[in-house]
Simulated assay, not measured.
Amino acid sequence: MDISSRLIKIVEMVPMSDTVADIGTDHGYVLIELLKRKKIKRGIASDNKEMPLEKARKNAVAENVENSMDFRLGSGFKTLKEGEVNGAVIAGMGGILIRELLENDMDVIKHLDFILLQPAQNPEILRKYLYQHHYRILEEELVREDRRFYEYLMVKYDPVESEPLVNHLDYVVGDLLLKKQHPLLKDYLTSKIKELEEIKEKINLTSVNAKRKSDDIILKIKELRSVRDGSDG
C-alpha cells in the first residue's frame, strides 16, 4: 500500500496508543498503516458516507488488518463513546468544519489524550479557535506535497489552558512552528505572502471598504515578511 507523504506525516505523529479513531476516514489508509507499524492495537474508521467506509473495509481486508478495525457510519465524533479511544485523527476537512465537529461533541473530546488535526482549508480559523477555547497545542508540523503546504496540529483539550496569541498575524502561523524554526517555515510564509498579494491585486479600490481591506492586507503582508525574514535568526 503506497500512501502520500501527507498521510505518512500523520502516521509518524500519532503516538503509540491502544485505540485511535479516524474521523472522515476516506480509504482508511492512516489506520491501516498505524496497525501495520504496530503503533496502535485497534482502529475505528468513521465516516458519514457509506462508500468511503466500504473502500476502507476492502483496503483493510487486502492488508490483513480487518480484524483490528471497526467501521462506523456517522458524523464526526458521534460514532464514538466517551473514553472508547485514546486519540483521534481528522485530516483533509476544512478548518471551519473541523471546528464545528469539535464544538458538537465535547463529552467525547474531553476524554481524549490527543487529537491530530490536518485542515485542508482555513487553518488560521481553526488555530484561532483552538487557542481561544481551552486546547493545549502539543505539536505542530508542516509538510509540502505537490507544491502545496499542509499544516498539522496535535492538540488536547485542557479546561485550564487558554492562551490566545497576541501578535501572530491572525493565527496564520503558530508559536511552535516559530519556536522550533521549522525548515519549511520560510517557504510557507512566502507562499502566504504570495496569496495575499494576489488577493490585493484583485481588489477594486472604488469604495471605502475596499480601501480598508487593501490596507489590512498590506499590513499583514508587512508583518508576514517581518516574521519570515527574521525566521533565520
Rank of each mutant, 00 (worst) to 15 (best):
H27V: 08
E66N: 13
V61P: 00
A56S: 05
I32V: 04
N64P: 03
D22L: 10
V30K: 02
D22N: 08
V65R: 01
R42A: 04
R42V: 06
D26M: 08
R42H: 15
L35P: 02
M51D: 12
M51R: 12
D26K: 07
N64T: 09
T19I: 15
R57M: 13
E63M: 06
F77T: 00
S46N: 14
F71D: 07
V30T: 06
R37P: 04
K41N: 11
K41R: 15
K39P: 05
S75F: 03
S46A: 15
S46W: 00
G74F: 10
E66D: 14
A62Q: 12
L53I: 12
I32F: 08
S75C: 05
R72D: 01
K78A: 11
S46C: 15
I40R: 10
K81M: 05
R42S: 00
K36H: 05
I44G: 07
T19K: 13
E63Q: 15
A45E: 03
M51K: 14
G24H: 08
L73D: 02
R72Q: 01
N64I: 03
K41E: 14
L80H: 06
I44N: 01
E63R: 02
L73M: 15
Y29F: 14
S75R: 09
R57C: 07
L80Y: 12
I32T: 08
L34Y: 12
V20C: 01
D26T: 02
F77Q: 09
N64H: 13
G28Q: 00
F71L: 08
G43H: 04
S75K: 11
D22V: 07
E82Q: 10
L34K: 03
S46E: 10
K36R: 14
R42I: 08
K58Q: 11
R72S: 04
N48I: 13
E82Y: 10
A62N: 09
E50V: 14
K38S: 13
G83C: 11
L80M: 10
L31W: 01
E54H: 09
M51A: 15
I32E: 06
A45H: 08
H27A: 09
M51E: 14
G74S: 01
K78F: 04
M51W: 11
F71E: 00
E54I: 04
A62D: 13
K36V: 05
N59G: 02
F71T: 01
G28R: 01
M51P: 03
R42P: 01
S68P: 03
G43E: 00
F71K: 02
D22Q: 12
L31P: 03
K81R: 11
V61D: 07
L80A: 09
K78Y: 04
I23E: 03
E54N: 14
S75N: 12
S68C: 13
K41Y: 09
I23H: 08
V65A: 01
R72A: 01
I40M: 02
V61K: 14
S75P: 06
V30M: 00
D26V: 09
F71Y: 14
G83L: 12
G24E: 02
R72W: 08
K81N: 13
T25I: 11
G28F: 00
